[in-house]
Nucleic acid binder design. Structure first.
Length: 560
RNA sequence: UGGGGCGUAGCCAAGGCGGUAAGGCAACGGACUUUGACUCCGUCAUUCGUAGGUUCGAGUCCUGCCGCCCCAGCCA
């Protein structure tokens, strides 16, 4: 059994196509975003699918902007889309296209349809068209303008083009079937009159083609063989085929639909993402909490991990919601071998090692990545005063707490075993101010007699050498609402905005080597997670984003 | 009796021609561990929405039923 790469239904279709069409051994796909927003991880699924299929079958994949509605689109988005696709690791080479480049050809094709008696100019306004369309259960009525002569239609359509009519006053419609059970076939609008400046064609046009008309033509002109889109276009496929069949475009692409990606603990719709940005719940489209590709990139995810994720989720037609833990698994797995280990104390607690010589500095050797020894080692300064993590000390520990507690020993990673001798507290508040410990000089890491075992190992930084840093801890943007006890109604677990999706820690201390950290550099902060130097990070003010925490079976214990 | 889709474990998802339920994530045990990480090992669907039928044999074929999603933009 070949259980390495499970085949998806689209690969099966392509295999079958290749088997049957002996001449046509060519695979050509396209990624067709509308430049009206930022790409998100759902688009990544589509990008990986389209470019991935092309690569797998030795074919090509185009980048094409579906820019047929100037009132919603903007150049700003074109740039971000290209950045994102490239970042994901895909290359459209010289095949960057725009539907708007085909406007002239589309116009000519429309006249062709008119001449064939398959399209007509309709004077009904938007509201009237809706009324004539009928309902889901009742057939529509034919437009009174449906049977104009070809000559009249041609003249009218030409007048539309040159701007003789007001916006919305007329449309060009396909003459198909007003009684069709598929509403898309009830004489769909092909062209609307719209005076808007297009980001590429400027004011050249005042009529613009509709998606259902423009898309199949664009596909055919580019020689697309498999036009892959999402499920909601399934109902449009007969219209897609109608356009391709009724025009002589020399190519008949096939539309295939798959289910879009949904992820737990976040939202994916452009509308909701825009809301988050505009209402200030996040700091922008690239906020590290956003599921946008720019957000994910800033958070510190690698393109490799996103591609791996897109491969693992599969492609099918069933609506589904992928657990975000799979995404987290993918980035952990990727960074485990790639990210150098480093020590950072997020919530510092001072520790004084009473029997360690004052003023002494030892240079301890620390491997950079135990999973990848080729990454070498570095020197860490060890001194009498250090900081450990607040949560690594407990005065009255629960069972199985094998970190530092009064009278007990613990290992300092790469250094010595220390024992907690005394706790200094604020007399008024009871707050723990510092710990006094002793160390065992025999237990230095790597030395002959370091063999004594203690259960816990802590990370630490030298007080004198540590660097100040800001660390941003991110949590899910949305959480499931707590469900009430009564289950009279359906147990609709509604998503609610997580008010604690960002925690900014400004008093963190990191090991001195991090001074060199450049924006985008990724590290594993030992025992805590994977972090990435943020865009805001400078040599004078280090800022790290938590990409994802390490798995934490101790934290799970607590929740049980 | 509008039309189009979909229903395999907590979450994804493989299952050409009917032959006795892949894999991943999560979870749970355990081993290892100078990261409670990583790694390793083990457990996790007698059953494929459901009820019948055909068959020696059905997740795969047939019929009925149930549930969920999409469609009435001059958006894509």
């Amino acid at each position: 059994m070949n259980n390495f790469t499970p085949r998806n239904f689209i690969q099966n279709i392509i295999d079958e196509d290749l088997r049957q069409n002996k001449e046509v051994k060519r695979i050509h796909t396209r990624f067709p975003p509308e430049p009206n927003g930022y790409l998100h991880i759902g688009h990544a699924k589509s990008i990986c699918l389209n470019f991935g299929l092309a690569a797998e079958y030795g074919g090509l994949c185009n980048l094409r902007y579906d820019d047929t509605n100037p009132s919603k689109e903007d150049l700003e988005y074109v740039d971000s889309i290209e950045t994102d696709v490239k970042w994901l690791g895909f290359d459209w080479e010289d095949r960057k296209y725009y539907a708007s480049n085909y406007f002239e050809k589309m116009y000519e094709s429309a006249e062709e349809l008119i001449r064939a008696g398959k399209a007509y100019v309709c004077d009904l306004n938007a509201e009237e068209i809706r009324e004539y369309r009928g309902t889901l259960k009742e057939p529509g009525k034919e437009s009174p303008y449906r049977n104009r002569t070809i000559e009249e239609n041609l003249a009218l359509f030409r007048s539309m083009r040159v701007g003789e009519f007001a916006d919305g006053s007329r449309t060009l419609r396909a003459k198909i079937e007003m009684a069709s059970p598929n509403l898309n076939m009830r004489d769909p609008v092909l062209y609307r009159i719209l005076r808007a400046t297009h980001h590429r064609t400027g004011d050249k046009w005042c009529i613009y083609p509709m998606y259902d008309y423009a898309h199949p033509i664009s596909d055919a002109l580019e020689g697309i063989t498999h036009s892959i889109c999402t499920l909601e276009f399934e109902d449009h496929r007969p219209l897609y085929d109608w356009v391709v069949d009724n025009l002589d475009l020399g190519c008949k692409p096939q539309q295939i639909e798959f289910a879009r990606l949904n992820l737990t603990n976040t939202v994916m719709s452009k509308r909701k993402l825009r809301e988050l940005v505009e209402q200030g719940y996040v700091e922008g489209w690239d906020d590290p909490r956003m599921p946008t590709i720019s957000g994910i990139r800033r958070r510190g995810y690698t393109p490799e991990s996103i591609r791996d994720f897109c491969e693992r989720i599969g492609v099918a037609k069933a609506n589904s919601e992928v657990d975000i833990s799979l995404l987290e698994h993918c980035i952990r797995e990727d960074l485990n071998t790639k990210a150098p280990r480093v020590m950072a104390v997020l919530r510092p607690l001072k520790v004084i090692i009473d029997n360690y010589p004052e003023g002494q500095v030892e240079e301890l050797s620390a491997e950079n990545n135990p999973e990848n020894l080729e990454m070498g080692s570095r020197k860490l300064p060890f001194t009498r005063e250090i900081y450990i993590e607040q949560e690594d000390f407990m005065e009255n520990p629960p069972k199985k707490f094998f970190r530092l507690t009064p009278g007990k020993e613990v290992r300092l990673k790469h250094a010595y075993i220390i024992k907690c001798e005394r706790v200094v507290k604020d007399e008024k508040t009871g707050e723990i101010l510092e710990l006094h410990c002793t160390y065992d000089p025999q237990t230095r890491s790597g030395s002959e007699q370091s063999g004594r075992k203690v259960k816990g190992t802590l990370h630490w930084v030298s007080a004198q050498h540590a660097l100040q840093a800001e660390v941003r801890l991110y949590d899910y943007l949305y959480t499931k609402a707590e469900e009430g006890q009564d289950d009279n109604d359906s147990n609709e677990a509604e998503m609610v905005l997580n008010p604690h999706s960002l925690a900014r820690l400004t008093t963190c201390l990191v090991e001195p080597g991090l001074k060199e950290a450049k924006q985008g550099d990724r590290f594993q902060f030992m025992r805590q997670g994977y972090f990435c130097a943020d865009l805001d990070s400078t040599e004078d003010k280090l800022v790290f984003n938590r990409i994802v925490s390490l798995r934490d079976s101790w934290a799970k214990q607590g929740k049980k």
